[in-house]
Design a protein around this nucleic acid. Sequence first.
DNA 1: TAGATTGTTAATCGATTAACAATC
DNA 2: TAGATTGTTAATCGATTAACAATC
Lengths: 225, 225
Amino acid sequence: MTARTPSETARDIPEATVARLPVYLRALTSLSEAGTSTCSSEALAASAGVNSAMLRKDLSYLGSYGTRGVGYDVDYLRYQIAREIGVTQDWPVVIVGIGNLGHALANYSGFRSRGFRTVALLDADPARTGETVAGIDVRPFDDLEGIVAEHGVAIGVIATPAPAAQAVADRMVAAGISSILNFAASVLTVPAGVDVRKVDLSIELQILAYHEQRKAQDQQQEETA
Amino acid sequence: MTARTPSETARDIPEATVARLPVYLRALTSLSEAGTSTCSSEALAASAGVNSAMLRKDLSYLGSYGTRGVGYDVDYLRYQIAREIGVTQDWPVVIVGIGNLGHALANYSGFRSRGFRTVALLDADPARTGETVAGIDVRPFDDLEGIVAEHGVAIGVIATPAPAAQAVADRMVAAGISSILNFAASVLTVPAGVDVRKVDLSIELQILAYHEQRKAQDQQQEETA
DNA sequence: TAGATTGTTAATCGATTAACAATC
DNA sequence: TAGATTGTTAATCGATTAACAATC
């Protein structure tokens, strides 16, 4: 909650837009790999799964990177978005909790190719430390502070069981981590200035179940009507 | 886009509220397991990580399940929310793509305990079929239609590499699945009436990276100021 | 009755969309 | 110049929040 100078405010991008920038980035990468050098907002929006007015509005927060009558230069726009997100260089990341999900995350190639480098895998269970996953040694959770300091880690991933997650988050924050991606099924409490994002698989399924149930109800109504 | 009768409209719940109901459900389950029989909107909101005005507004869409001056009966409210979401009985689910992530999903105990039952694991790679994961045999992808018909599967999970995802979604939809949880890094095109939710690990990290970069910039500004 | 807490209203805030002037 | 497409404005829509009357 620091006061911002006008020049800072100018760079403020709405949260909903921030969440879509990575989607545009991915769409531009596909277009670039397919050999497309220029695209319209209409084409890019289609490939990102949004409407073109929203895409143009979103891009307008970054600056004016298109050419009227022509469209956008794919590689140029791609670079501008990557720069805005901050993934033109790699972010070191630690993953804590190397169970089934931690294994999958460690092996996930999408991190590496999209601006993230897993510098350590940590687990509190001595039975797991010493194991090698995706070419990285699993180390004791107590190594956290040393690793964060050594690599300047700002982002941590929690893939532990729910009961352990808050304690892990507390240690992460104390060690200097200020962004956490939480896969554990628990609500984390963190100090102001620390960002937490939560990915919850069963919540996603429950949202689908709600809509699925509604569809079934609507169908029944139609039949009775 | 079916026209709705007034009685249907009355049951319409805003999308943002739907997304929070599973969070309340989980908080209520914790409270119940901890032996709490009654709680205020203030206490429940704290445990779900939202503000209490929003919680009460959300619950008001379901009905009037609290008692003024007293609060909510934990188990009663828990049941009402579960019923509204549609997880008072189990939903059969198929998972397609049994790589690292598919393994983790198959082993994820949170599905089972929260209203979902994995009835089949499918993979197109013959080298993987025959394997047993979490006590379930991995079967050929071509068994999809038979399994969907046999178990009345409405919800499918895609954990394949990105290039395969659209084809898998098409087959799922043709087989009768109308809700898809997509872990693949690609935008799916589906007919109206089919719901897709997307979980994208690297997008979540990129959103954190953006805010992390902003924090660093703000700090620099402070130092120069 | 006094204190507590819900359910709802109204105000505010933020996000989406359509439309179009600017301009290549 | 004519056609295409951006960047921006203004209108609409939906979500959040504060405040409080209703009521246990």
